[in-house]
Design a protein around this nucleic acid. Structure first.
Lengths: 357, 357
DNA sequence: TTGAAAGCGTTACCAA
DNA sequence: TTGGTAACGCTTTCAA
C-alpha cells in the first residue's frame, strides 16, 4: 500500500495510484494541528494562536495566511475532546431524552431552549436515555462531563445522582417535569393546573358529577395522574364528584364507555385532551347522548380540530413559558454554582369555553 | 479558604470546617483515576485494568475490591473525552436535528433507531443544528469526531462536507430525507409516493379534476412539494388535471377557499394530510358542498380523527421501516467503510378508502 | 500481579 | 513575533 503522503486535493496528479477501490481513499490519518504546523512551517503553538484568534499574541499577517491555507488544504478540524481535556471543562449542556408522547408544544419549547443556549455559546446535546437504569443514568451522563444537565422528570434524579454529576463537573443540575424536586433546581410543568382549570370551567357551568378520562396508554399516566389530582382539588370545595374513567385511544374502548354512560350518572367529563375528547364525544353522540345538554365535554390543548367539531369543543389552552429566560437561568447557574434551588413554573393554562361545555 | 483535601464523604469529621455556605461544597476537583489509585494504594494502570475488566491481565480479587471501593467512595466516573482521545476513535453516532414539524411516526422511528444503535454499543447523540450555516455545519459536527453521522435532508450535504467528515474520522455519512443524495448512503422517505397513492385512489373512484392542498406554513413545503410531484406523476397517464391549492392552517383561509370552490371546477381534493383535510372538509360542508358527491376528499396519516369524521375520511396510511436493520446498516458501514453507496426506501404507503372518497 | 512511562490533540505559560 | 514544553485523563505496552 503506498504510504499516505498528503497530496493536494485539487491537483489531479497521482501517476500510478489509480486506486482499484474508487471510494476508498487510502485511510489517511486525521490531520492534527501538528500536520498544519508542519505544512505551514510553524510551530503547533502558532497554529493554535492563529486558528483561535488569540488576542494575547500578535502574529504577522503572512504567517496567519500560511496557517489558514495549510488548515483548509488539509481539511483540519480541531478535536473537541482534546480541547476540552486541555481546558479542564466543557460547554456542553446535556439534555437526556426519553421516548415520550410529546406534542408540538414541547417540541417548540426544546427548540427554543436549544437555540437560546447556543446563543450563549453552549453546545446542546440530546442524549437518548430511554433504556437506562435510573441508578446508573447519572454515571453515564457524567462521563460526558457536561457543564449542565437538564434531566426529564421521567428519570427520577436522586440526591446521590445529583451529587455524582456535580462532583464530575456539572455546575447546574436541573430537572424538568410535572413536579419540582426538593433540593434541586426545577423547571415545573404542573399538569395539575390543567385538571383544575378544566374542572373549574365545568363547575362554572353548573356541573357537579364529573368524569375524568384516564388514558390507558402507558406513558400518559405521567400527565394523566396529576391532571386527575388537579381535578380533585378543584372539585372538593364545591362538593363535586370526580370519577376516573379508564379509556384506550380506540373506537371500541370509547363505544364501551359510552354504552354504560347513563349508569355512571355523570353530567360532565374532562376528557384528558382534545383527541380523547373527540373520540369520546363521537361515541357519546353515536350512543344518543346529547352534548352538552346531557353531558358537557371539555378537552385540553386547544387543537384546531376542536373548533371544527360540532358542537365546538371547549378546551384548556396550554402555553409554555418562553425558553430564553431559562437559557439565561442555566447560564447564571453555570457562572454562580451553589445558588439556592429555584423552582420555575413553566405552564400557563386558560379555559376556552365553547359549545361543548 | 481551606485547601481542598480529599475527605471521605462518609465520615462526618470536619472539625471546624462547618461551612458558612451550606450548599457550596468547597469546589473539590473532579476525581481522576489517579485519585482512585492513590486511595486504593495501587497504580493507575491497575485501576484501569480493574474498572474495564481487562481480560488480558489477572488481578487478585482483594485488589479488585479495594479499587472498586475507592472508586465508589470518591464517586469516580471515567472521562469519556480522555478515553476516546487515547483510543483514537469514538463510538458516537451523531444525529444532527433541525426544528421540524415532526409527527409521532418520525418520533417513534428515531427512538427505535437510537435504541437499536445503543444495543450495538454506540453512543447516540442528537445535536441541534437549526441555525447552522450548511457550509460549516459539517465542520462543527466533525469537531466531535463522530464515527457516523446521519444528517437530515434539510441540511444539504455537499461532497465537500462529506469529505471533511470522512477525513475527520467518520466511517459512515448518511443522509435521511425525501430524496436520495447521489454518491452518499441515503435513507429515503420519498414523499412523492404519498401524493401518487392519494391521487391513485381518487382516479380509481373516477375523479379527474383533482386539487392538491399546498400548506402555506413554511417548513411544510419540504413535504408538500414532493407530494404534489407524486400527484402529478400519477395523474398524467390518466389525463387527469392537478390543481395546487395554497391553504393556511386557519379557518378563514379554508373558508375563503371553500367560497370560491365551485369556480375551481374540481371533483376531488388531496388535502395534504388528515388535519388539513378535516379543516377543508368542514369548510366545504359549511359552504354547502357535498362530500363526497360533489367533491371527494382524501387526507394522509390515517389519524384516528379521520375515522371519527362524517363522512369518514379516506386517507393514505404511512409506515416507516423498522429501524433495527438501519442500525445494523450503520454498524456495517462503520466496520467496512468505503462500501458502495446504498439507498434505502423507508416509507411504505397504502390507500385507505373510506366514505369521503 | 503490578508499576512506569509514553502518547492521544490541545492550549497556555514562559523564554527567546 | 514565535517556539519549546508541560499538562489535561486515560489506556496500553513493556518491564519488573
Amino acid at each position: 500500500m503506498p504510504r499516505s503522503v498528503p497530496t493536494h486535493d485539487g491537483s489531479g496528479r497521482l501517476p500510478d495510484a489509480m486506486s482499484q477501490l474508487p471510494n476508498q481513499p487510502a485511510q489517511r490519518p486525521v490531520p492534527t494541528s501538528a500536520d498544519v504546523a508542519r505544512l505551514a512551517g510553524v510551530s503547533r503553538a502558532t497554529v493554535s494562536y492563529v486558528l483561535n484568534n488569540s488576542p494575547t499574541v500578535r502574529i504577522s499577517e503572512s504567517t496567519r495566511r500560511r496557517v489558514r491555507e495549510a488548515a483548509t488544504e488539509l481539511g483540519y478540524v480541531p478535536h473537541a475532546a482534546a480541547r476540552s481535556l486541555r481546558a479542564g471543562h466543557t460547554r456542553m449542556v446535556l439534555l437526556p431524552t426519553v421516548a415520550f408522547p410529546t406534542g408540538p408544544l414541547h417540541h417548540r419549547f426544546f427548540h427554543e431552549l436549544e437555540s437560546g443556549l447556543r446563543r450563549l455559546d453552549y453546545t446542546v446535546v440530546q442524549y437518548g436515555s430511554t433504556g437506562l437504569d435510573p441508578d446508573d443514568a447519572p454515571r453515564v451522563w457524567a462521563e460526558l462531563r457536561p457543564v449542565a444537565v437538564i434531566a426529564p422528570g421521567t428519570i427520577p434524579l436522586t440526591p446521590q445522582g445529583t451529587g455524582l454529576l456535580r462532583r464530575s463537573g456539572a455546575k447546574a443540575v436541573i430537572t424538568l417535569g410535572p413536579r419540582p424536586v426538593p433540593g434541586a433546581h426545577a423547571l415545573v410543568m404542573d399538569q395539575r393546573e390543567v385538571g383544575s382549570c378544566a374542572v373549574g370551567l365545568l363547575l362554572e357551568r353548573g356541573r357537579r358529577r364529573i368524569g375524568v378520562v384516564m388514558p390507558e396508554e402507558s406513558g400518559l399516566a405521567l400527565f394523566a395522574e396529576p391532571r386527575l389530582t388537579g381535578a380533585r382539588q378543584a372539585a372538593q370545595p364545591h362538593g363535586a364528584r370526580i370519577e376516573p374513567l379508564p379509556l384506550r385511544y380506540e373506537e371500541e374502548s370509547a363505544a364501551r364507555l359510552a354504552d354504560r354512560w347513563r349508569t355512571l350518572d355523570l353530567d360532565a367529563v374532562f376528557a384528558y385532551n382534545d383527541e380523547y375528547a373527540m373520540l369520546l364525544m363521537r361515541a357519546l353522540q353515536d350512543a344518543g347522548i346529547d352534548v352538552p345538554r346531557e353531558t358537557a365535554v371539555v378537552g385540553a390543548d386547544d387543537l384546531m380540530l376542536g373548533r371544527l367539531l360540532r358542537p365546538r369543543l371547549s378546551t384548556v389552552r396550554m402555553e409554555l413559558a418562553t425558553a430564553q429566560p431559562l437559557a439565561d437561568l442555566v447560564d447564571r447557574l453555570v457562572r454562580h454554582p451553589g445558588c439556592a434551588p429555584e423552582h420555575h413554573d413553566l405552564l400557563r393554562v386558560g379555559a376556552v369555553g365553547r359549545e361543548s361545555a
